[in-house]
Design a protein around this nucleic acid. Structure first.
Lengths: 341, 341
DNA sequence: ATGAAAGCGCTAACAC
DNA sequence: GTGTTAGCGCTTTCAT
């Protein structure tokens, strides 16, 4: 008993397959007389007909599927991605699309080119750039996508200025704002705790921090820029180094993401330090995550959900509207005062 | 310039389309001579050929796509789902599948039947049951799936005993273990803070708790069973009621999930109580989540990742192995001692 | 070893 | 209004 198809309905209704297709797909059409339409619908209902989306997609050359390529790394699906994903999903539900998830297979058998292969299933691709995507990787990927004429949008952290759809936050402005906030509170030795130095995000934040300190006649010495590679042990080592000398120790730390913030909290707890008495901290990340920590972090909340929502929206526009042009959107961010700075 | 297809390669190589298909899909085949094989592969490479998965799927009647139906509710994609999703993805990567995400559209236009419609894109479906799926909903859904002969697996919280693939934890045993642990620590008035009373999980936990208290000659009065509907305000009201009378207030609370645990922590903070001095707490949920809270919760860590991994594995077996039979697996759980009980 | 041809289930252009 | 026909791009017998 294979599932019923258009032909089955057509036979029962004694009409052509085309008539059935039309009757089923168009609410009010003049192509098929009302009587037949009703009969066809009744039969379809009775047979429990469900259209084969695959065949439909092949014929129409579109699937209403969007692909999301996410790095499933260490905390595998982290807060950040989960939030973005939720935003994407919200848009997709509104606009009648579904989401196909890929993860990069580190499997050497599959070349980069083949990783994009799966796009044959999708009308477009969404990339969420996180810790594991260097500026270089991203540039390469864009090359490939453009060559293959694949529609895509990038969410978070992208540096190049070519014509790609992009949505993120102005990390540079954020870095600057962080310094401003801290300087106002009399901090003069500010350190930057980051994941990897290769990330676009890192670069932008750093750029902003530099602009900020310079504007206030301070500096950001190289030894106060720490890249932990998202490794707790490394983070501890960096912090120990910073606090080794009472004289040069930072009085405030700007922490690039949630994962690091957690490590920082663990460090503080382990070393018996207090926030913000011993060192002030400004975080950057997810609101939900931050709400769990005590003392409550003073932090920039990233508009993750909105990034997903808007990114998906942009991609769908690009797909559906032939002459839609590329957009680059930087969403606003806000500093939420907590108890750590 | 439409993307190259088999026909393009066939023309260039002066062979039939069938030959190209065979040459490209089978590493070492005798169906096509080695010379031709190499030539075909070279041309494919040169043309940057990428197979159209859609056409392939239509012809083979299989997509290597699995559908995941997740309730995108309040904390939209919550910790729990995110973890399960990671586990699923781990298996899929290993076995060469991809994941299609649906969310239930509350859109009245789409009937329940149509929500399953999209299965025409997938070889099977995974359901993760959380707060929004009542026992009743689940039973209905199973009916539909069976009628449509759709392969599926259910992850977490399912009560019925029919032949469905299922992976979860033994919530009943967990409830009992919670009581045992608390009684050992001299607690005699134990309360149960839960989300919704309609959930299979709730029922199983309650069942275990009841068995536990009875075994120790205690009881679990109705007024010490609180269903907060995952609403912070309701949670506060429940807790206020419990603590209104010094005499009857619970000395320990078993908290059914992370979300609630967070509310409980907020309550304790708001009312100036201390954990575990004023009340002991045992949680149940995600390890990562728990690690953020202070004091560290004593809690059962759910094997979320493993549930996803195993669930996906079971589904794929069901799809690929014709005579695979149904399985119902309950994963082991462990109580991690923290500072709250 | 190789190719022709018949699908897979549906859509859409065209003819009547 | 309704049916016919030609795809969509690939796989898979079945002849040769």
């Amino acid at each position: 008993m294979t599932p019923p198809k258009l032909a089955d309905i057509a036979k029962r209704a004694e009409v052509s397959i085309a008539a059935v297709s039309i009757a089923l797909n168009n609410r009010d059409t003049k192509r098929v007389s009302e009587a037949k339409r009703n009969e066809i619908r009744a039969i379809a209902e009775e047979l429990n007909y469900i259209p084969n989306e695959l065949a439909k997609a092949l014929a129409q050359q579109k699937t209403r599927l969007l692909g999301l390529r996410v790095p499933f790394r260490d905390p595998i699906l982290n807060h950040f991605i989960a939030q973005v994903l939720s935003g994407i999903q919200a848009t997709l539900m509104r606009r009648g699309y579904s989401l196909l998830l890929y993860s990069p297979t580190d499997n050497p058998g599959r070349s980069t080119r083949e990783q994009i292969l799966e796009r044959r299933f999708t009308d477009g691709l969404i990339f969420v750039n996180t810790g594991s995507c260097s500026t270089r990787d991203i540039a390469e990927r864009i090359q490939l996508l453009k060559a293959a004429k694949i529609k895509f949008v990038m969410i978070n952290s992208y540096t190049h200025r070519s014509s790609v759809n992009y949505v993120g936050v102005d990390n540079s402005a954020m870095g600057e704002a962080a310094v401003r906030y801290l300087v106002q509170r009399k901090h003069r030795r500010i350190a930057f705790l980051s994941g990897s130095g290769k990330l676009p995000t890192h670069l932008h934040l750093l750029q902003g921090l530099r602009r900020g300190v310079v504007a206030h006649g301070l500096d950001l010495p190289a030894e106060h820029i720490g890249c932990s590679e998202n490794n707790e042990e490394t983070t501890f080592r960096i912090l120990d180094r910073w606090f080794a000398s009472k004289r040069s120790a930072p009085t405030a730390i700007f922490c690039a993401d949630d994962q690091l913030l957690k490590h920082l909290y663990d460090y503080v707890e382990a070393r018996g330090k207090r926030l913000p008495e011993d060192v002030a901290v400004i975080g950057r990340g997810n609101a939900g995550f931050n709400s769990l920590l005590r003392p409550r972090p003073t932090a920039f909340h990233l508009p993750t959900f909105e990034m997903g929502e808007l990114g998906a929206e942009m991609l769908i526009d690009l797909i559906e509207k032939p002459e839609q042009k590329h957009q680059r959107v930087l969403l606003p961010f806000k500093l939420h005062a907590g108890d750590t700075a």
